[in-house]
Design a protein around this nucleic acid. Structure first.
Length: 264
DNA sequence: ATGGTTGCTTAGCAA
């Protein structure tokens, strides 16, 4: 088979509010793996049957009201793990991993951080350091591994609609960028930047003030992969159309295609 | 400019 594998990430800002959007996206983009963030719904209250009835597997790590992540796929999801390995419990549901199509997929919803002088910002930096540790001790750059999700970090000026206005602010501050860069230095590559050097392509736009229509966005949703997968990546794009659907999420999906051949 | 909008839960928080 020469069919590429499509892997997408999308912060849906409540799965129950966006359920028809998600099903429409599955129909129209037909990803092999869809990583979702901000489900805002306890596992027991997820519309799991609406996925199973259409032939999708679903693995989730969710909590009531806040956060929540899930992986949806027509392919079997194995070795599902939630939260950080072996550490103390994190009360916030932000991390799920599963093996699918021979790829270890790690789906994250990085804390937003509120403001740089806040407790939430300190929690964000600590959480990002813990993920660096997780990569170091429980993964290997030589294996086909994909880290994706809402990273809540815009990595450089190309990812920001008004860099001077955002300089030093949360989502753009140097410590956040350094914490994310540490993941790259471990052995990941931003597949979007393999295929796009230009700025002005964003994945999130504020609901307030007509941010989407005005083009005031940030690229904070990412797909980063280890070298075996980077070598197989055919495309990576933001798909802005769902951001223009009625009652949209404030994020658009990002999707990458990988040519087969990474399996040992 | 400390506003603006959306979702969850029901006035306030989180984003």
């Amino acid at each position: 088979m020469h069919t590429p594998i499509a892997i997408a990430t999308w912060n849906v800002n409540s799965l129950r509010s966006r359920l028809q959007h998600v099903h429409r996206f599955l129909r129209e983009a037909s990803p092999d793996v869809l990583c979702l963030q901000e489900l805002k719904c306890a596992d027991k209250d997820l519309p799991a049957e609406s996925f199973r009835a259409r032939g999708y597997h679903l693995a989730s790590a969710c909590q009531k009201t806040y956060n929540g992540v899930a992986i949806v796929s027509p392919w079997e999801l194995t070795d599902v793990s939630t939260g950080f390995s072996g550490g103390e419990d994190d009360p916030q549901a932000r991390l799920i991993a599963a093996t699918v199509c021979g790829i270890r997929v790690i789906n994250v919803y990085v804390p937003n951080g509120d403001q740089v002088d806040s407790d939430k910002y300190a929690y964000k930096l600590d959480w990002m350091a813990r993920l660096r540790n997780e990569l170091k001790h429980h993964h290997a750059p030589a294996l086909p591994t994909l880290l994706c999700g809402d990273f809540n970090v815009a990595m450089d000026d190309r990812d920001v609609y008004d860099p001077p206005a955002w300089a030093g602010r949360v989502l753009c501050s140097d410590p956040e960028r350094a914490a994310a860069r540490a993941w790259l230095e471990w052995g990941l590559e931003d597949v979007f930047r393999i295929h796009h050097n230009e700025g002005g392509i964003y994945s999130w736009w504020d609901y307030r003030g007509g941010g989407f229509e005005a083009g005031r966005g940030l690229r904070i949703d990412h797909i980063w992969v280890t070298p075996p997968l980077a070598a197989r990546c055919a495309t990576c794009d933001v798909l802005p159309e769902p951001r223009g659907w009625e009652k949209p999420s404030d994020h658009a999906p990002v999707m990458a295609l990988f040519e087969p051949g990474w399996k040992p």
